[in-house]
């Protein structure tokens, strides 16, 4: 293991140059190629996005990608009011935020025994969880509607939060279990020897180490729920409880004619919370990769 003697290089400098014969110019060429390829992929991604970006500022937007004529903030002004934007956004945040918290707590708790203990129930349980990740929710919405009417949960935010949390649970459990598997059990055994209970070990040893993985799970859960149209559409009835994902449909159906500029402006606003959340998490993630040290220690 001669590798351990090497000074650890910064993350960005993973160029294909042998450490013994430093060839800086070759490393530089390699990195330029990587950056160029990344930028080409990004360009391919941006093209369809151009429509939403340009149409949002276009006073006369249609479905084509046109340079805004005239440039205007009128589209934003038109949608930025209580009924169109503020309340649906707040409703969405409450729905998806609460559901994400419930999902994360439940899935981390469930992942712990699934990752750490052996049991003959474990495999069937995981199989079931896996199958339910592929469940077409559209198919079960009719019986769910019936259930919610029976339980008097229809048109309640709390009931919808519980159901949304449940739809996200299977994938969250599966991902959390896999990320937890990557945390070496030796560290916990040390904690147990020091007298920590399993739950304490989970909180103080395992969770801090699987933070990047958990961030992915939380992000994925929230964004999946944030874009979910069908569930709140079926389970919530009154207008003042609807989240942004449902109210966006009013642009398509209300007047027959779609106001594309306003739709684009609204889409940008609607995407903002998820984008901000990602940026926040990724900043934190930058400094949280402590796996290497933990394994060695």
């Amino acid at each position: 293991m001669t590798a351990t003697d090497l000074p650890s290089r910064p993350r960005a400098a993973k160029a294909p140059a042998a450490p013994t014969t430093a060839r800086p110019h070759r490393r530089w060429v390699g990195r330029s190629v990587v950056n160029a390829v990344l930028l080409v992929i990004a360009a391919g991604y941006v093209v369809p996005l151009l429509w939403v970006l340009l149409a949002a500022f276009n006073g006369t937007a249609g479905l084509g990608v046109d340079w805004p004529a005239p440039w205007t903030l009128d589209n934003f002004r038109a949608v930025l009011d209580e009924d169109t934007t503020y309340r649906p956004m707040w409703n969405g945040l409450v729905l998806c935020g609460s559901a994400t918290i419930i999902t994360m707590v439940c899935s981390v708790l469930a992942a712990y025994p699934l990752s750490r203990y052996r049991s003959r129930f474990k495999r069937p349980f995981l199989l079931t969880v896996l199958f339910s990740t592929g469940l077409p929710i559209t198919a079960i919405m009719v019986p769910v509607y019936g259930l919610f009417v029976q339980l008097n949960l229809i048109d309640t935010t709390s009931g919808t939060i519980l159901f949304m949390a449940t739809t996200a649970l299977p994938i969250a459990i599966w991902l959390a279990k896999n990320f937890m598997d990557a945390v070496p059990i030796e560290l916990e055994e040390a904690a147990w020897t020091d007298g920590a209970s399993p739950m304490k070990a989970l909180r103080h040893v395992v969770l801090p180490l699987m933070w990047p993985g958990l961030a992915v799970v939380a992000l994925y859960t929230f964004i999946g729920l944030w874009g979910n149209f069908f569930v709140p559409f079926i389970l919530l009835l009154s207008n003042d409880q609807l989240p942004a994902s449902v109210s966006i449909y009013t642009f398509f159906s209300q007047y027959g004619q779609v106001v594309y500029g306003e739709l684009a402006a609204y889409s940008l606003l609607y995407s903002l919370p998820a984008v901000l959340l990602y940026l926040l998490l990724s900043r934190r993630l930058g400094g949280a990769f402590t796996f290497g040290g933990a394994v060695k220690g």
Partner: peptide
């Protein structure tokens, strides 16, 4: 930011 931007856009959009 761009790739994830595409992902966080709601399906309809």
């Amino acid at each position: 930011a761009i790739v994830i931007g595409a992902w966080v856009l709601p399906e309809v959009v």
